[in-house]
């Protein structure tokens, strides 16, 4: 085994150990540790935002600025791609 192989095996095992520890320490499915904000949104979303879908009410109302950032990312990506390929199309 060369030195490069040993380095690869070592780094791979260190990453694998971290992942295994993370998988062992994960909480059971459907039972998060902190439930304060979830319960607040689930009980109040219908009356506060008027939307039956709690996920959409979070995405577009409670966390609207995140959606604005996502929209900006998409807009920038589309603008850059169209700018590059418009020059190529001529």
């Amino acid at each position: 085994m060369s030195r490069r192989d040993i380095t690869a095996v070592l780094s791979f095992s260190i990453v694998a150990i971290f992942f295994i520890f993370g998988a062992l320490m994960i909480h059971p499915f459907g039972a998060p540790d902190e439930t304060g904000m979830d319960d607040n949104i689930i009980t109040n979303a219908q009356t506060e935002t008027g939307a039956n879908n709690a996920v959409t009410s979070v995405v577009f109302d409670y966390r609207g600025l995140d959606t604005l950032g996502e929209t900006t990312i998409l807009f920038t990506a589309v603008a850059a791609i169209i700018m590059i390929f418009r020059r190529l199309n001529k």
Partner: peptide, 25 residues
């Protein structure tokens, strides 16, 4: 829903045209 459906329409128009524009170009 208040402004949520209107925002959905705006984002929907943007995503339709943006993703299709990428592929078309």
């Amino acid at each position: 829903g208040g402004v949520i459906p209107l925002m959905n329409f705006a984002v929907g128009l943007k995503v339709i045209v943006g993703l299709f524009g990428i592929v078309l170009v």
